[in-house]
Design a protein around this nucleic acid. Sequence first.
DNA 1: GTGCCGCCAGAAAACCTATTCCGAAAGTGC
DNA 2: GCACTTTCGGAATAGGTTTTCTGGCGGCAC
Lengths: 340, 340
Amino acid sequence: MSQRVPTVRDVAARAGVSVGTVSKALNNRGQLREETRARVVAAARELGFRPNSLAQGLQSGRTYTVAVITTDRFGRFGNPLMLGVEDALGADRVSVFLCDTRDDPIREHHHAETLDERRVDGIIVAGRRKQTRAPLAVASGVPVVYVIAQSSDPSDFCVTTDDVGGGVLAARHLLASGRTRIGHITGPERFADPRERAAGLSSVLDSAGLDLAGGQVFYGEWSEDWGRRAAEMLLHAAPDTDAIFCGSDQIARGVVETLRDRRLRVPGDIAVVGFDNWEPMAAGCRPPLTTVDPNLREVGRVAATRLLDMIAGRPVEGGVETVPAWLMLRESTGVREAGA
Amino acid sequence: MSQRVPTVRDVAARAGVSVGTVSKALNNRGQLREETRARVVAAARELGFRPNSLAQGLQSGRTYTVAVITTDRFGRFGNPLMLGVEDALGADRVSVFLCDTRDDPIREHHHAETLDERRVDGIIVAGRRKQTRAPLAVASGVPVVYVIAQSSDPSDFCVTTDDVGGGVLAARHLLASGRTRIGHITGPERFADPRERAAGLSSVLDSAGLDLAGGQVFYGEWSEDWGRRAAEMLLHAAPDTDAIFCGSDQIARGVVETLRDRRLRVPGDIAVVGFDNWEPMAAGCRPPLTTVDPNLREVGRVAATRLLDMIAGRPVEGGVETVPAWLMLRESTGVREAGA
DNA sequence: GTGCCGCCAGAAAACCTATTCCGAAAGTGC
DNA sequence: GCACTTTCGGAATAGGTTTTCTGGCGGCAC
């Protein structure tokens, strides 16, 4: 009872040919009689033969594997991203190694070494936040694409979200809905992402000759609780606010709760726009949230596609490619009620 | 300018020894003079040599790779699970292939074939729901561990959550807090998970001689909206309800919202317990939710550990191993207010 | 002092599995 | 009978690990 997995040698023996012939028959290469080819194929099927991709990789120098290194503790951002990556990679029978660094440089280095040894064809390095980071320490020649967090080496290629554009989308939508006294509650000022979203909003307001309701951006934390507290502050500073753009869906949830407590109708009295399009948060809200979708799945798809380009030797220019966001319309920015 | 990655041959040439000697030197095997070993190690370092793990895998028959096949990429369930898997695997330098089937049997089969060819050492098949599924169609001999969804082959090994136990925990906690009129709002009745949670609750209530508030389990959907609607129904049927155990944190959020609308205080008038301990949902709730944590990270850790056992040839009995849940205490089940 | 045994260090070769290139045998055409 | 094609075997190759082999040397006995 040999439980051994069959090799080309076994197939060759069973078909009565040489190993070279087996390879040619199964890969449709070389000159073979149709009868021979069929015999080999039959033998392979009967034995349940599966070529060893380690041996193939050794031979060809390509492993058809790609790694995704993420700092995101498999958080919610990683999911749509991975989905996009799989979209692009799946077609090519490329398998994905998933490595979580847990924000630890030692772990990252460790993963990089292992991936080097595994001779992955390429690597996607995904950060959680927009920031500049040191290039991944990996064998020269292995293509690397950076996602969201970009490399400090300008010749590296990076794909990222369009946070300024997301802010612009939200702002234009609110203006188009007839809102003019728009406030902004968002995450920590020390991060680039919320600053860019705020910049997008401000640019639109400036062009329209409008000021930010409350006179300032309310920077704080990425939590519902901050949304609740900041909404109080904003309404205290500017009681006539008629729209609030929030830096995340979680913040928006908090904001909506405060508005409800104060008997303010959404969207009747105040429209609310979130950011992330984090389905369970945004759709579960009452009313469901209109929100900016940063298009992470597309970001993942673009990253993987470019990586495949680089692997195939097609030139990919260094620099940052920005994927446009889009607006998910739900009820929280619906039409303003008459007389409101 | 040869960009070629260095091989043992290059190291051997630089150190002035044979390739066999290089291997022995770098792996601390065989008999070598200390001076020779040091010379080889130095040469390897200077060249930036990294052994090709494809070649090693070909030789040893072990690849130090494991695959996780999941049907649940969107879900929040995959994240803590993967974390646990990496906890257990990381120590052994085992890399993880992540395969998403998107609930498509064709995709699953496709992944299984590819993993076969890659000669992964083992596979973890993770389902989203407790159900029985056909065994993964993979080369005989490759160890497979099933998570949550179990294999129809009783000799396969499966790790799963303790939903009955979770229900028991929630029920005991509520009884201990002095609640006696406990309702239950949960997900679809056609799934085993909510039925088991309800069974756990019922068993405790039965032992205490209590009935379920509202006279029935409110089965529905896994949404906030169902939580809101079902809470209305429950309160209509049993206005004196003093606690609600919810089948998910999302449902609990909806329930809490309805209670707030009705001016019922949580936990003052009614205590609420969720299920999942999905941090942003449970902690963001006002008040923060006491909730059953199904311990998915531990489930992942156990699955990976058992898989490593099987890979190492240590016997693992078939059957289902259940990982105990635990209760995350937050404010939604705090002390009952005096006079309430 | 010389011959033999055994050990040490490292070279050389075999092996893991699949692919590819080269060449040989057999068959065809004229 | 010669050139040419078709068909397939055999060997080289990829990059390591492992086993076997060899040369040199020390120790011991006579």
